[in-house]
Design a protein around this nucleic acid. Structure first.
Lengths: 194, 194
DNA sequence: ATCGTTACATACGGGGCGTATGTCAACTCG
DNA sequence: CGAGTTGACATACGCCCCGTATGTAACGAT
């Protein structure tokens, strides 16, 4: 089949994606130059526009990739918990933790919403949100959690966690602030219990 | 003394601010042209850079203004409540409501954080956050709310509310979604009660 | 009345994005 | 096996926009 060609093409796509992650994370979306970014991996803007359409398309691809990785990681952590409720708390803590990484923070939490709009409208559908919603739905079904709209609760929980993470990361003393944030998260989440 | 001059100067400052609010809200920060913006009120970029330093400075001024207005409005609503706890819930609901306005959403929630960084680091100190923190401090003191870090709890509460608002506004059917969001907010907040 | 200050306009340079066009290698098919 | 076609990527161009340096005219002080 057309393997040789498609193979190489996929490789350049990945190289561009990787370079974009670094550039967007370090300089931010607006300040990242497409010329510099492509040159860093030995290509030109031609390749970029061929693969991703425009600068925004590139950001979308990067965000989708990171979002999927986050959701997978959170899901894996949740799986290791004895009860579903513990899984929910653990996933929340995981989000707070992940959002401390500069790459996640800058790209997914700050530039992502500004450039691509509300996360729930992204094509990736915000996998993180989906994961949390699923867990909540089951918790409501088995009576652990009060009867609220699962999607609404998931959005609030996620928003709280991500906001907490932003706070921790921007703090001068993250080590002191992190436990406070996690404790507050647990207290707040307990409001959902039946 | 130097009133005539200072008076006029203040007026042009306000005109620029007003034009910026409109432009940033309608086109978004990145797509808003400083040339167009200033021309819309019969001035040039010269005036703008004289008053605000740069494009970012203009956004900061706009954000500060809106933030102050939001905090004032929330505070006023809280004052009308019988108990402090009701005030907290009412303020939360007010934030959800205010964040539905396109101006607030686009400027304060989306572009603000992306361009200016984490809201808690803004010079305006995010008045909204301050207000909520104050109320929480008093609620903890009088034993209504469990002993958590007030700032942490305020950040989470605010994050949840604002995220909910983004969700409502981006939804296709805001009327259906709004009550779900408000209900979920109340349930979540109840976790703070002692 | 003169001079310094300052609010604002004009002019200039640099850079970045998107697109139109070119090129060359890889696959297809007779 | 060779000619044609497709497609991945490079090159070239125009446009817009930001920030700054420079100019100017009005206002206030002395």
């Amino acid at each position: 089949m057309a393997t040789r060609r498609a193979e190489k093409m996929e490789e350049t796509r990945q190289r561009l994606l990787a370079a974009a992650r670094v550039a967007f994370a370090e300089k931010g979306y607006a300040a990242a130059s497409m010329d510099d970014l492509t040159a860093a991996v030995g290509l030109t803007r031609g390749a970029l526009y061929h693969h991703f359409g425009d600068k925004r398309g590139l950001l979308l691809a990067v965000v989708t990739e990171i979002d999927a990785a986050m959701a997978a990681r959170a899901h894996a952590i949740g799986q290791q918990c004895g009860t579903l409720w513990d899984a929910l708390l653990a996933e929340g803590a995981a989000y707070i933790d992940m959002a401390r990484e500069p790459e996640v923070q800058r790209i997914v939490l700050l530039d992502g919403p500004a450039v691509l709009g509300d996360p729930s409208q992204w094509p990736s559908q915000n996998s993180c949100l989906q994961t949390t919603t699923q867990v909540l739905r089951r918790l409501i079904a088995d009576g652990t959690v009060r009867a609220v709209d699962p999607e609404a609760a998931a959005r609030l929980i996620n928003g709280a966690a991500l906001n907490a993470a932003l706070w921790v990361a921007a703090s001068n003393t993250p080590e002191e602030v992190l436990p406070k944030a996690q404790e507050a998260f647990r207290v707040l989440a307990s409001g959902l219990l039946a």
